[in-house]
Nucleic acid binder design. Structure first.
Lengths: 143, 143
DNA sequence: CTTGACTCCGTACCCCACTACAGGGTTCAT
DNA sequence: ATGAACCCTGTAGTGGGGTACGGAGTCAAG
């Protein structure tokens, strides 16, 4: 079935998304992508949009979101009616998470910059400045 | 042994770092913290600095670094002798990693902001702006 | 010197996110 | 109509990062 077709096979989806076939099935089981049409042959017939979704998942994973969180992110879109405020609240909460992460990463980056400068300088003694980054009262923060 | 002492027991370290005792031992096995002094009793005697290190590890984990990457971060310090250029190179490489992470987070944040604005609007949540963000050629990024 | 909290080590188990079979069925170019 | 290349289901195994025993030794307050 190499010939032109409206649908994509699972192999094609996997290839275009840069993952393995098994991963596509896995994401289906986990509810991250919809279960596609299934003709009598049993083969999955995907529409092209799923590749986008797959790529989004890969990308979000790279940002440290768990599959569970990604599912949440993806479900934000499906606000049928009414729950708009709730959807917005979840989005804002994710935004807060992201901002906290970015702030911490900035600190770590600064620490590394200082370290590399110390290196360039006459730097005698060893103290490790990266511990100081991110140093604050116990990160009792949940999760 | 509630009385004042120079050293910390593993239980104390765990408590002060917000993790379980087993986790402290686990990090020791993994080389993330030094193996502490061991008097004949076999009990681990920690100096207070380890708590800081433990907290750093927790924090870095929250930023999406793997334990292996964290070990690398922790090993970066101005070397007493020589190897300065190597340390600096590694620091700069970590800085690059961090900047990539931050850029991705910025994108995600923008997408979420757009979503939340769309949500705030009068209409239905309409099309999904989240999928549009981060939509680009396959994130073949290593790691 | 007992008692309860703490520690030791080793092994086993857990969740997550895949990844790899095994043993079949389907498609399609030749 | 055959064979390579694909797909199916189901189960099992992997690696990362812990978490939970079990059975025994240690510490210090009463």
């Amino acid at each position: 079935m190499k010939s032109a077709a409206q649908y994509l096979t699972i192999g094609r989806v996997a290839q275009d998304s840069g993952v393995g076939v098994e991963t596509v099935r896995f994401y289906e089981r986990e509810g991250l992508i919809e279960r596609p049409e299934r003709p009598p042959s049993g083969y999955r017939h995907y529409e092209p949009g799923v590749v986008r979704r797959m790529r989004f998942i890969q990308h979000a994973k790279g940002l440290g979101f768990s599959l569970h969180e990604i599912a949440e992110l993806l479900s934000l879109r499906v606000a049928p009616d009414g729950t708009c405020a709730a959807v917005q609240a979840r989005a804002l909460s994710k935004i807060r998470d992201i901002e906290v992460k970015m702030a911490a990463l900035r600190k770590m980056r600064r620490a590394l910059l200082r370290l590399s400068e110390a290196c360039a300088g006459p730097g005698p003694a060893s103290e490790c400045p990266i511990l100081e980054a991110l140093d604050q009262e116990s990160p009792r923060a949940r999760h």
